[in-house]
Amino acid sequence: MALELCAAVVLLAAWLSLVHRRLEAQIYLYATQSAAIAGIAFLVSILYATPLLAVTGGLIVGLNVVVIPWLLRRILRDLRIPPEINMLVSVRMSALAGLGCLLLSVAVIGPLTPLAEIPAAGLLPIAVTVVLIGLFTTATRRKAFSQVLGILGMENGVFLAGIALTYGLGLLLELGIAANLFVLAIVSRLFLHRMKDTFDTVDADVLRSLEG
């Protein structure tokens, strides 16, 4: 029951990130989503007696819930990024697209036969939905900052998929992802600083002028 609740929070957070316009709120949504995934990790580790997964959960809490949101808020403050999100697609269309992602992944992942052997496989369609929504967010936001948020959302989806399929047996893999994520946050921070310096904006559309 608690597992389903957490999964619902993950899904809802992903979907809300599509329709919410304030960046600050987006960061909180990301933190909430990460916390829910950490919860899932703990629950699964108890259910299937895989203590390693608890380590993963702890990592998520530490990194995604605390450190990365803090980093993001600092970027937001330092670069004085406008708090409103600038979208290429209207909010209504985004919301519909989010539902479309959910439908697609349930339709595709649900019937895969080999998954029947994996108990926590019910999480997989949600994980794929989160990845798809993250990708969609990345593609439809104008600001480089909100694109970073989209990519972070995708990484969360990958985490969730890892938990669903391996119950933490892929600890090494997840550690790899965690390291990756941290590097991503740092690189994007540097990148945004450099972009702000060069173009005086974090609007990714200016990159068009670099076309070869």
Binding site: L135, A139, A204, L207, G212
Partner: peptide
């Protein structure tokens, strides 16, 4: 050259 186009291709 637009990053959004590339991401859209990926989706």
């Amino acid at each position: 050259g637009g990053i959004h186009a590339y991401l859209a291709y990926m989706i």
